[in-house]
Amino acid sequence: MYDKLLEINNLHVNYKTADDVVYAVNGLNLSVRKGETLGLVGETGSGKTTVALSILKLLPEKIGFISNGRIWFESVDITKTSEKEMRRVRGEQISMIFQDPMTSLNPTIRVGEQIAENLLLHKKDMTKKQISDRVDEILRLVGLTKEKKNDFPHQLSGGMKQRVVIALALACEPKLLLADEPTTALDVTIQAQVLSMMHKLKEKLDTSMILITHDLGVVANNCDRVAIMYAGQIIEEGNIRDIFTAKHHHPYTLGLFGSIPDMSKKTRRLAPIDGMMPDPTNLPDGCHFWPRCTDRMDVCKMCEPNPCYKDTHMIKCHLYKDLYNERGKDYIVGKDE
């Protein structure tokens, strides 16, 4: 059996504002195995970052709530963990790389001290000398010279800052790394450098990773498994071959691929999805994608589809439910949890 490191069951997250309730995550199931990289793909507002914040219990206080569901990390239910215990988990067991390296470092503290702070909090038995050596070592791992530890963040370029942020996240060798769009703010050549470095480090430290991104190219090059999110749910999931080479997909996934200019083919027009993301305060009934879907049927407007499985490939769409049509015959309908 595979060892599951993280398992999310039927997660619901709401944000309560003065006027509305924002339904950010709506019944999400997801699991991460030891040592694997899971790509979490979706557009702005699909709830990717909310999932990451829920795992760390960093949802904004008094606004964001986990209204239902369980998050199992190893054998601990994070939704039931106290704040005091969570502090030991964050940074040591699970750590996060935030999207914007420019704003995720403290501008008044030297980068070396920021990395050391993490070690000071979590590795109480380390001596000063050991901590300083560890900072030098981790900087070398992310491709920076140890002299850089005396610099302030503003003295570093965007790519270097992101390397420092990665060093910070990896300092305690966490079991799970949540990388929220780690390279979106970087140029392509720097992005390629940072991604290849992250990949090597992950192998070396045997860390599991959730890579949150909207770039399918980044996913193809870095992930073992992919989950595609829409309006707070996983609508398609599978290993990398299922998503990139299988014949059948969720209509939304097809739209996502149709929106990227294909460099190997000459097409004059892209095939984007019409319309936009539904308003998360007022989600449509049934399948949340139906107002934009080209293959919609009457049943889509009424009831939410169950996940349909073919080996490792899961598609949450009514089209794959029917055993007797061409698409549905390979897929087995699963039960909704």
């Binding site: 140029d187 390629a192 990139f244």
Partner: peptide, 26 residues
């Protein structure tokens, strides 16, 4: 050449290809 090589392509068949990544920054 380096710029073209650095683009992450959403296509698995090109994965094995050796990429020439450039070192350093602008």
């Amino acid at each position: 050449q380096a710029l073209l090589d650095a683009i992450p392509v959403p296509n698995l068949s090109l994965l094995g290809k050796e990429k020439k990544l450039i070192e350093g920054e602008v």
